[in-house]
Simulated scan of single mutants.
Amino acid sequence: MSALIHPTAVVEPGATLGEGVQVGAFCYIGNDVVVGDGTTFGVHCSVQGPTTIGRDNRFVGHCAIGGEPQDKKYAGERVGLEIGDRNLFREFCTVNRGTGSGGGVTRVGNDNWLLAYTHVAHDCHVGNHCVFSNNATLAGHVTVGDHVILSGFAGIHQFCRIGAHAFIGMGAFVNGDVPPFVMVAQEGYGKPRGINSEGLKRRGFDSERIAAIKRAYRALYMSGASLDDARARLEEIAAQSEDVREFVSFIDGAQRGLLR
């Protein structure tokens, strides 16, 4: 089935639409935009290029996708946005393209839910199976792992990394790297408050894996040890746990300092 385009929509000649794409009323699809099969756009969506969108995505309405980065250093260089498959973008989502000095590309993976008024800034990399609740916001250059949940009104500072399976609580402001599996609660800037054990259970982690992650969390956040001493204890735990090895690897790559 060829694309279905509402009579009030504007699709520029330089756009490429796959089979079964639906473009709703008053949408705008710009030049240098590629849209995969089965993707749908509700009313008043706009997509600027260069942007590549995979298949079976759903943009509910009033989404602004692929806009210029909100960065004063941006000087019009060619930069892009890449979106994978089967993502849901609810009302008024905004996702910006990258910057020339930041790698040039913003990426959103597969099977994510970005709810109303969420924002993904320039040069962010979002993994797979994430949920961003209403008004959750990523500043520029943020990296988000797989299966991460950002609760409503959560805000992530630029250049931070959020590890896989982390859970950021409602209204928490994060200004440091969050290791995998950790829960962060609102308290001024966000503070670690245990591990995301319920989420891990839902994803098939057994009790032995979760227990090892808990030991790692206690060593890093509850022992009172310095980071160097805590890391030595983490190495001991990591010898018996692939999950904790991921935890340690994430800590070693911290750029903005670890959220403690």
Results as ranks from 00 to 15, higher is better:
residue 60 V to E: 11
residue 61 G to T: 10
residue 121 A to F: 08
residue 50 P to M: 07
residue 88 L to T: 10
residue 134 N to S: 12
residue 22 Q to E: 15
residue 48 Q to E: 15
residue 122 H to C: 02
residue 42 G to S: 02
residue 59 F to L: 13
residue 42 G to E: 03
residue 32 D to P: 13
residue 94 T to D: 00
residue 38 G to R: 05
residue 145 G to K: 12
residue 145 G to C: 11
residue 84 G to D: 05
residue 139 A to I: 01
residue 113 W to R: 15
residue 134 N to D: 11
residue 114 L to C: 05
residue 52 T to N: 09
residue 130 C to I: 10
residue 78 R to Y: 01
residue 149 I to Q: 09
residue 110 N to I: 05
residue 29 I to P: 00
residue 86 R to T: 08
residue 140 G to Y: 06
residue 141 H to G: 04
residue 23 V to T: 10
residue 142 V to G: 10
residue 49 G to R: 13
residue 108 V to H: 00
residue 24 G to Q: 01
residue 61 G to S: 14
residue 63 C to V: 13
residue 47 V to D: 03
residue 50 P to L: 03
residue 17 L to I: 12
residue 31 N to V: 00
residue 17 L to V: 13
residue 128 N to E: 13
residue 116 A to G: 05
residue 43 V to G: 07
residue 46 S to E: 09
residue 133 S to G: 10
residue 108 V to T: 03
residue 128 N to K: 08
residue 87 N to D: 09
residue 149 I to R: 05
residue 153 F to N: 15
residue 93 C to K: 07
residue 134 N to H: 08
residue 69 P to M: 05
residue 19 E to T: 03
residue 29 I to A: 01
residue 63 C to I: 09
residue 35 V to S: 03
residue 132 F to T: 04
residue 109 G to C: 13
residue 134 N to T: 13
residue 94 T to W: 02
residue 76 G to H: 02
residue 149 I to L: 12
residue 132 F to L: 14
residue 130 C to P: 09
residue 109 G to M: 07
residue 106 T to R: 08
residue 106 T to P: 05
residue 118 T to L: 01
residue 109 G to E: 12
residue 32 D to H: 11
residue 144 V to W: 01
residue 36 G to I: 09
residue 121 A to Q: 04
residue 64 A to S: 15
residue 43 V to C: 12
residue 79 V to D: 03
residue 18 G to H: 08
residue 106 T to A: 07
residue 113 W to S: 14
residue 51 T to W: 02
residue 116 A to Y: 13
residue 26 F to D: 15
residue 92 F to H: 12
residue 117 Y to C: 11
residue 25 A to W: 00
residue 100 G to V: 00
residue 35 V to F: 04
residue 124 C to F: 05
residue 28 Y to L: 15
residue 112 N to T: 13
residue 111 D to K: 14
residue 142 V to S: 10
residue 50 P to C: 01
residue 66 G to S: 08
residue 49 G to Q: 11
residue 49 G to F: 11
residue 136 A to V: 04
residue 138 L to M: 02
residue 43 V to E: 13
residue 133 S to Q: 14
residue 64 A to I: 06
residue 70 Q to M: 04
residue 14 G to T: 02
residue 42 G to I: 00
residue 27 C to P: 06
residue 79 V to Y: 07
residue 149 I to A: 10
residue 36 G to K: 05
residue 23 V to R: 14
residue 153 F to I: 09
residue 120 V to M: 02
residue 124 C to W: 07
residue 18 G to S: 10
residue 27 C to K: 12
residue 152 G to N: 14
residue 34 V to P: 00
residue 124 C to H: 07
residue 103 G to H: 03
residue 126 V to I: 13
residue 109 G to K: 07
residue 59 F to N: 06
residue 102 G to K: 10
